Amino acid sequence: MKPSVYELDELNVESTLGQRGLESDQVSIPVIDLSDFENRREAITQALWQAATEVGFFQVKNHGIALRDIQRAFLTSEQFFALSTAKKQAYPLKDGLNAGWEFKAQVRPSTGTPDQKESYQITLPHMAGLWPEPDEVAGFQSIMLDFERQAWRLGMAILSCFADKLGFERDFLRGCISRSLSIIRVHCGCCITCRWRYYRKGTITGAPAPTRISTA
């Protein structure tokens, strides 16, 4: 079967990935405390670096995003997913652009099969005609964009630590990322993921600053 070709470079890269992983109960995902960030920057940087290089994942706490704002974002997304299928179908996922609503329809390039989930994706330049009407979900657009802005600040603070560790200027990695290409993926009953693609040699090549907020 001829492989799919996607408009977004990162999806073409993802289509070359994917293999059976390994399960292990010997490694736990570190939880890193970001409180008093500026005064504890060195210790936080070391903890982030250790987690990233030795485990590959980490969680953060005391990150500065208020619990009420997280709960508001989840409540708003729940209200959207509670709409009838007919109403949600008015905001369909735009092919290859990571924007809009889908239900078990998005084919992951790494597997070639549809994801078994329902989601709504927000990619800032591609949202024309995809925001729910105010009488369907009050404040949806403003609430989700405010949440993205807070996640952006968190992601950039974390990236600044990695820039320090790598010997770059503190804002170097932030300067490589296009804020206009922010992606918010809202998963029904699960989590909200925010990520930002970065540029390298003039092309979009990846998403190094994901921030995942979960109900768990």
Rank of each mutant, 00 (worst) to 15 (best):
L159T: 05
P30L: 03
D135W: 06
Q150M: 12
Q50T: 13
E38Y: 02
E14M: 10
F172E: 08
E7Y: 02
P134L: 02
N62H: 09
G56P: 02
R195M: 14
C188L: 10
K165D: 01
E10H: 14
L154V: 00
V60F: 00
A128Y: 04
A128E: 12
C176W: 13
Q121F: 14
A73Q: 07
E38S: 15
G129Y: 01
I184V: 13
R108Y: 13
E14L: 12
A105P: 09
A157I: 06
S77A: 14
H126Y: 15
G175I: 08
F162C: 08
D9Q: 13
A163E: 00
P132V: 06
D25P: 14
I65F: 03
R197I: 00
L93F: 05
S180F: 08
K88V: 09
T111A: 10
R72I: 04
D135S: 07
I177E: 13
G155M: 11
I122R: 02
Q46C: 11
T215L: 15
T193I: 15
E23F: 12
F103R: 14
H187W: 14
L67D: 14
F168H: 01
E102S: 11
L34V: 00
N98Y: 14
I213F: 15
M1S: 12
K201M: 10
R72E: 15
M144W: 04
G206E: 07
L75D: 13
L83Y: 08
A66W: 03
G202S: 06
T85V: 09
W131I: 01
G56W: 00
G206F: 01
V137G: 02
Q46E: 15
T53D: 03
I32R: 00
Q50M: 01
T205A: 15
C188W: 12
I44F: 01
R149G: 05
H63F: 06
A43P: 05
K117Y: 05
A105Q: 13
S15D: 05
C176T: 09
F140Y: 15
L97E: 02
L154G: 04
V5P: 03
